[in-house]
């Protein structure tokens, strides 16, 4: 009965209190999937992102962000920005060049173009990731799936990033190349990409926010996923309060490049009073 405002209100309110497979959990401490070893009261972000869905959050410096791939079919396309000055953003070229390593793994920093670490990869049970191919465009989905409508069954990663960015006042020109987790690619001797796909179900990746971050996440198939169908699983996201990398952490001086990147990051944070 939705014929009057009163009835419509009753009808709408009766819909509350339910759950779905894909939803944010508020408060975050109520998440049914709190990661092992994490105190639920420390959680600041808990969510299951739908297949073909996206999420975005501003998190404090020192936040630990965990992505879980419960089915082995998630693909987390990620862009991070300095939340205080979003013109500072993920720079994939520097993220590969500075550490002298193309394949993302635990210990790898996600660098901005300003010589600082936006986030450190501090945990990784997958090892199947990609920093070459970015995410999908509408043109890509159209030629692969025959459709690319953002509201339809074959949304492009870029379409989702456009909307996520817009919700923080950012325009399409603010979308740099992204990285993706849980679906891997390798480069052969001739430069050709070899598809490695997923490392299987139950894998996780953990990032540590080294500055206040705006995090954009799109959960769509990797562009080189060889399956003809649009196959992507749910993605879990949990974040909790922790500490940014400092001199007491092994990774602080793991390489001379990382050491100077952390020094630059701390220099910025201290000057801003963070």
């Amino acid at each position: 009965m939705t014929d009057t405002v009163l009835n419509a209100r009753e009808d709408a309110r009766a819909r509350g209190g339910q759950t779905s497979e894909w939803m944010p959990y508020l408060p975050a401490s109520s998440s049914p999937y709190c990661p092992d070893g994490v105190e639920p009261s420390a959680l600041t972000w808990a969510e299951t992102v739908a297949p073909g869905g996206y999420t975005h959050k501003v998190v404090a410096r020192g936040t630990r962000i965990r992505f879980d791939d419960p089915t082995g079919d998630a693909c987390a396309h990620v862009i991070v920005y300095n939340a205080l000055e979003p013109v500072e953003r993920l720079n994939v070229a520097d993220t590969l060049k500075i550490p002298w390593q193309a394949y993302l793994d635990a210990g790898h920093p996600l660098l901005s173009g300003d010589g600082r670490v936006l986030a450190s990869i501090v945990g990784d049970t997958s090892g199947h990731h990609d920093a070459f191919c970015g995410t999908t465009t509408e043109a890509w989905c159209l030629q692969k799936y025959g459709d690319a409508a953002p509201e339809g069954p074959f949304p492009a990663g870029r379409s989702l990033f456009v909307k996520a960015a817009a919700k923080h006042g950012l325009a399409p020109r603010d979308l740099p190349p992204s990285v993706s987790f849980f679906q891997g690619v390798r480069v052969d001797a001739d430069g050709a990409f070899e598809w490695r796909g997923s490392a299987g179900e139950g894998k996780s990746v953990e990032l540590l926010a080294e500055l206040p971050l705006l995090v954009l996440v799109a959960n769509v198939p990797h562009p080189l996923d060889p399956r003809a169908d649009y196959v992507v699983g749910p993605l879990r996201v949990h974040a909790w309060r922790s500490k940014p990398t400092g001199p007491d952490d092994d990774r602080f001086q793991v390489t001379p490049e990382a050491h100077r990147a952390y020094l630059n990051t701390i220099d910025y944070a201290e000057a801003r009073g963070l």
Partner: peptide
């Protein structure tokens, strides 16, 4: 606002070079 994209260039051709 439409500009060069290294990842699109590489993904469409399936090669890093």
């Amino acid at each position: 606002e439409e500009r060069y994209s290294a990842p699109d260039t590489l993904a469409w051709q399936g090669n890093a070079y």
